[in-house]
Design a protein around this nucleic acid. Structure first.
Lengths: 120, 120, 120, 120
DNA sequence: GTGGTCTAGACCACT
DNA sequence: GTGGTCTAGACCACC
């Protein structure tokens, strides 16, 4: 069994994930313009190229689109947004179940714990 | 809100977490001897001191104990083990819910997804 | 029975004991900031790592806590302090009685001697 | 305030203390012959000179006496023995009180703790 | 060989 | 500058 202290994930992937979450949860609303690359890059303290790379990921996924020289906008296509949301959720759940399984925790147990925690 | 490309977790914490999981899921059975520090260190590609630090974490948790110069053993106290399992599970669920909330996913939705996934 | 010229106690344990006493008796008051690791290390003529090790002992006992990069502070929780005091006292008395027993001195005798000495 | 990780005490003092205790508590009975220097030295893993030094301490105190070439014997003088016992006890109590004082523990408290412990 | 301790020196994050 | 972590290399006690 391999060790590996990950954080293998490239920075642009991590940035894309974060922005994706912010689009999904509405921090950036549908149709809203997002800040220019340079500004985002400064905020995240990364190279503009890296930020560009991250944004192009989201573009491929259809979450954002560049309107010529006018800046980038979050898509207004609700179907795309909800699909992205579903995919992200699926991946989160999947990862969660994988870790739970590594600790030999049954799904029933998990559900019970989630319900209990949700009452907090 | 701060950005941050974490890897905030120190190596010894990550090692401890991994070993904890392996003890919880029975990779290292109760009462079983675990490999010597130096060997674990080589396997994990870290300095023996770092591995020692990680192991001492598990020792204060009561999961393992050093028997003089005879090597380290997983505790035989099942109560301690199950308590550790419960704590770890709780933390996993809590972290999971935190992330889900950041994506505005309801608990009902999560439970439904878990049940569906569990049929895979 | 084994002989032994001890100095069995590791240095970091001895340091911890000393600092614990100083916290208990108020040399370091509750809520007070304690000197930085490096300075304490110099004063005690040990390696900073060793001092760090000693301090982390007191930290797990809850007697001190590190406030980020702002230095370490003695806890303000009086309950913790008095509990530590009680534990330390118990251990002192226990060790004392053990030695007294090895010299076949009865508890009555000890108490008498303590009372007499206290009038000095 | 000085640090110092004691064990400043010379080895021969430590040996003398141990032997003194063993004479006081009757491990070596009054009038009994004690093992030859060389044997004691081997047992204690010290240089015979060191052991000699220790024994001469006890000789000065009158606890043991050398009978020419016939070996050393514990004194039969009960007065000397009980005096030594008293001195040792006094020193033990004194040291105990010193430590207790450094933790700000009152004599009344100590006595109460001793009485409680004695019921164990 | 094994656990444990200690030193020396370095780097990082935070502020 | 402060706490924290990590590495490298050494020594000791025990069996």
């Amino acid at each position: 069994m391999a060790w590996s202290f990950n954080q293998h994930a490239p920075v642009y992937i991590q940035i894309a994930k974060r922005l994706r979450t912010e689009i999904i949860n509405g921090t950036y609303a549908p149709g809203e313009q997002i800040p220019p690359v340079r500004q985002l890059a400064i905020t995240a303290a990364v190279n503009p190229n890296t930020m560009q790379h991250a944004l192009s990921e989201l573009e491929v996924e259809g979450l954002i689109c560049a309107k010529g020289t006018q800046g980038r906008y979050v898509t207004e296509d609700v179907a795309v947004l909800s699909a992205a949301r579903r995919t992200a959720a699926k991946q989160l759940v999947s990862e969660f179940l994988k870790q739970a399984e590594s600790m030999s925790i049954s799904k029933a147990e998990l559900i019970k714990m989630i319900e209990e925690e949700s009452q907090v």
